[in-house]
Every structure is written in structure tokens, then in C-alpha cells.
Design a binder for these strands. Structure first.
Length: 271
DNA sequence: CGCCAGGCCTGCACGC
DNA sequence: TGCGTGCAGGCCTGGC
């Protein structure tokens, strides 16, 4: 569930609590996430100091100087800042306990998330090395999207979800941004004009910023690191709104599947 | 009960 | 041959 805005909200909460703190203990209750949590992680992390908390796409990077803990929340993961000793509940798989008594706890019912270690620069990890530009950075522009989509016959929505084109766009925000840009999700990416690429990139950035301002989207499992819920789901124009009226023209929102993912759009407003 | 869900990797068949 | 492409499947639990 957590998409880029939710991961960024989490990052901000973690940065305030974890930066500069030393790790004293690691608890692994269930190592079987998407990939197994390395069993030597407990020994490896003890004594390290978290320098800063970064994000690349939907990966959180706890930078320890000589390497980084890489955390992905998958579909149902959340990270909470708690006090050491707080009782673990179901699906609380992993804890980091810090010198000052603060505890970082990962909960992930579906276990599609990941906790990994990368020596040195975490951006060299195979999962991160091939990622495209960050959508909120200046590295991602209409010109960049236009160039990346030339010659591609796949739908624009499929390519927005391709992390090699742009990193960390999830299904909700792909749907919402295409609506905001008035572009049909099924449109062949290679035929989008330069102007429409510009408009889409602006819409994508605005959609992500609006979600950040609303504290992200809380659908089922997501909570911020302080336990707060996001409320951007109240602002969805099309996502999850099959047959409900389009906010602009009131015609019913259509639902279909593109690349195995639920897709929603207004056939009147999006061309 | 079956079906669906915010992610994302792997592998396959197919067509150019 | 080697891509790009669209699928299917896999990993899981929980909610409807």
C-alpha cells in the first residue's frame, strides 16, 4: 500500500527520531519477508550509528556510513517509532533498538516488504542500481519523459509504473496523475506529444505533493511513524471510484486492467 | 467461499 | 538474434 508519498512521510518521521543514534540491539521475529532478512544482520548492525535516513523510490535507506539498511514496505508494511519494551503484536517482524531507548519497529502483515543490507553505497544494490529519476526531482522533466517514451508502444500507464522510466510511481498515483493531466491510461506512450509529456510530469509532481501535504493515503495498513493516518484517499478523483461520477464532468469513472493493475479513468475528460 | 488489494521480481510466448 | 511487450505466477494476510 505505501506508495512514494507514504514512504516519504515515513522517512521524515524516522529522520527526526533516528539520525545520529547508535543501534544497540536488533530483534528479528520473522525473517521470511519477500527476501529473507539476513540472519547476520543483528551482529552486523549492533554498534553502528545511523547517520541519516534517505529514500530512493520506495526504498528507505538507513545510512550507517559504511553501508546502509535498505527497507521496503511492500504492500502492507509500516514503520513505527516506539519506546523500547513496547509489546510486539502480530506481524511485528523486526525491531531496531537504539541507545536512547527508542525502538524502530516494522509491521508487515503480507510480508511483501524487505529488510536488506548493502555495504558501501546503497544505490549500488541490484534493486536500486537501475532506477530512473526521482519523480519530485529536477532530474525528472517533460523532456526526460518525452525522450524515455520515444519508440515505445506500451501504454503510458504501464511506463509510469516502470521504475526504470521514473522511480517509485505506484498504481494510485499513476491513475490520479493521468486523470489530472487529462491523458487516457491506455494511450501509447510513444505517441504522446512533448506538450502532453510536460503536462503529465507537472500533474505527477502536483499529485505527489498534494498527497504529501495530506499525510499520504491510509487505505488499510498504512500509518506514519508516529501512528498518524493520512487522508489523501479522500481526494481521489478516479482511483477506486468505478462507476462513481467524474469530479469534472460527472460521467461515470471507468475501470479496466492495464498490465495486471486496476486502472480508473474518465472516458470524457481523458483522451 | 472466492475474489480482491497499495509492490515488484521472474519467466514465458510472441512479434517485430 | 535480441529486444519490447503483455501476461501469468509467485510471495502473503485480511477484508468484503
Amino acid at each position: 500500500m505505501p506508495e512514494l508519498p507514504e514512504v516519504e512521510i515515513t522517512r521524515r518521521g524516522l529522520a527526526a527520531a533516528l539520525s545520529g543514534q547508535r543501534i544497540v540491539r536488533v530483534v528479528i521475529r520473522n525473517a521470511s519477508l519477500r527476501w529473507p532478512i539476513p540472519k547476520q544482520l543483528a551482529a552486523l548492525l549492533a554498534g553502528k550509528t545511523i547517520r541519516e535516513v534517505r529514500r530512493r523510490a520506495k526504498y528507505l535507506l538507513l545510512d550507517c556510513g559504511d553501508g546502509a539498511l535498505i527497507v521496503h514496505l511492500g504492500m502492507s508494511g509500516s514503520l513505527r517509532i516506539l519506546r523500547e519494551g513496547c509489546a510486539a503484536a502480530a506481524h511485528d517482524h523486526f525491531d531496531l533498538i537504539l541507545e536512547n531507548g527508542v525502538m524502530l519497529r516494522l509491521r508487515d502483515p503480507r510480508r511483501f516488504g524487505a529488510v536488506l543490507w548493502q555495504d558501501g553505497d546503497p544505490l549500488t544494490h541490484p534493486l536500486l542500481a537501475g532506477l530512473g529519476p526521482e519523480p519530485l526531482s529536477d532530474q525528472f522533466s517533460g523532456a526526460v519523459l518525452h525522450k524515455a517514451t520515444r519508440g515505445r508502444s506500451a501504454s503510458i500507464k504501464a511506463l509510469l509504473l516502470d521504475s526504470r522510466i521514473v522511480a517509485g510511481i505506484g498504481n494510485i498515483y499513476a491513475n490520479e496523475a493521468l486523470y489530472a493531466a487529462a491523458i487516457r491510461p491506455s494511450a501509447p506512450a510513444g505517441r504522446l506529444s512533448r506538450g502532453r509529456c510536460e503536462r503529465l510530469v507537472i500533474a505527477l509532481k502536483q499529485t505527489l505533493e498534494a498527497a504529501l501535504a495530506a499525510g499520504g493515503s491510509s487505505l488499510r495498513d498504512y500509518v506514519a511513524s508516529d501512528g498518524e493516518f493520512g487522508c489523501f484517499q479522500l481526494q481521489y478523483a478516479v482511483y477506486g471510484r468505478a462507476n462513481l461520477p467524474c469530479p469534472q464532468c460527472s460521467s461515470p469513472v471507468r475501470a479496466l486492467r492495464i498490465g495486471q493493475r486496476s486502472t480508473f479513468y474518465c472516458a470524457c475528460c481523458q483522451r
